[in-house]
Write a protein that binds this DNA or RNA. Structure first.
Lengths: 217, 217
DNA sequence: CTGCATCCACTTTGATACTG
DNA sequence: CAGTATCAAAGTGGATGCAG
């Protein structure tokens, strides 16, 4: 398999040769959260042509970024997961997402919000300096999407579904079914208090302070 | 001008819509170091088709990442420079470059080293933790390429050409004219002592410690 | 049903030539 | 110097087919 290269011996050029093609980093984004089936990726990426997905997965596998695993137990299907090398991409993905978040305008009708997107965006806009020494646990509900954020002594872990421990505060955003739900939209609702709270409500301010979209330059 | 989008309201997707197309981030990389003329970009990018360069510059300008300036004084030509938004991309570019640096194999014949690449790679592999409290100034000579790295109380600045202050140590790598010169190659020479030193030679070890390519996973 | 492969219209890229 | 014009080759998007 021949890959097009940039003819430069440079870290950035190499990175772009490996993950610079269309859809590649979005696939990595979804796999950062957890391993996925082919069809999960297909629906989670909403719009990726199936042949492109297949091609990218092969390229990423050959690059040592993604591993194709055969699920053992009752599932007996194919599961794609990041390798260690692939996981090392997370800081770069978050850095790009952080910059991109400053360039987001209003959501377009038809834009989707995925649990993966929400989790990744939480990680991207996490402000470690604001969380120093903090310990807290939030659960965020948007329609049928549930994600959680746990900060333990300033360290963040996020994930899909309910929190692994009893959350200190549950934030529920009632987004109409026909409205596009976006991270920024949700954060705006949070900031404006248009959410239901259950638990230690004082932790809402903390949440807003710790997860802040950097302002555009 | 219609741009293809990913239909996701997500920071990463937005970033990729704006700078995810081929050559775009390499253009940004070269502009991070300093503003450039069209032809400088063309030669510095070694291999970019001229129509693609023209198209990208227009797209980046429309995205508010690049500014087209008309040079005032005796030069009176067109200069492309990053805007504030474009400069905010640097952390993401460095994060990608850092990851890519771990995925670099041996340089291929024909690979080029550019001053921009050298400067960017120095920034990418800079280890702030190792430089805490440090103040030092190095100048690196490779063939006719000269770049400098200044650390002031742990903060790094890098640039093209000779150091703005008298360097503590000048490192000269004698790379044969017909051999591909790479950042890793040079760092290997540095580590193996195959360089000429002029100045406080003890600062070579410091240099190696502060500018280390992270190992592959 | 999952996990792709194939086919086709369309777009982007690369290479080269050419111009104000 | 700073691009535009042209065209072949490669890549992408969309639909569909098909084996396990």
């Amino acid at each position: 398999m021949k890959r097009r290269d940039f003819g430069q011996y440079c870290g950035l050029a190499r990175a772009l040769e490996l993950v610079g093609e269309r859809w590649a980093l979005l696939i990595v984004r979804n796999l950062v959260v957890r391993p996925r089936r082919y069809t999960e990726l297909q629906t989670g990426l909403a719009g990726i042509p199936t042949n492109v997905l297949a091609t990218r997965l092969k390229e990423l596998e050959q690059a040592g970024i993604v591993e194709r695993q055969v699920a053992p137990a009752p599932q007996r299907g194919v599961v794609y997961a990041l390798t260690d090398v692939g996981r090392d991409l997370e800081p770069a993905v978050l850095a790009l997402a952080r910059w991109g978040a400053t360039q987001l305008g209003e959501p377009q009708p038809g834009d989707v919000i995925s649990p993966e997107g929400l989790v990744l965006n939480l990680r991207a806009v996490f402000q470690p300096a604001q969380a120093a020494g903090l310990t807290a646990c939030w659960e965020i509900h948007v329609r049928d999407v549930v994600v959680h954020a746990v900060i333990t002594d300033g360290d963040l872990t996020t994930g899909l579904g309910a929190a692994p421990v009893k959350p200190d505060l549950i934030i529920t955003a009632h987004v109409p079914a026909d409205a596009p739900a976006s991270y920024r939209g949700i954060m705006t609702m949070v900031r404006d208090g248009l959410v239901d709270l259950s638990g230690r409500k004082k932790l809402l301010d903390t949440f807003v302070r710790v997860f802040t979209i950097p302002r555009a330059a």
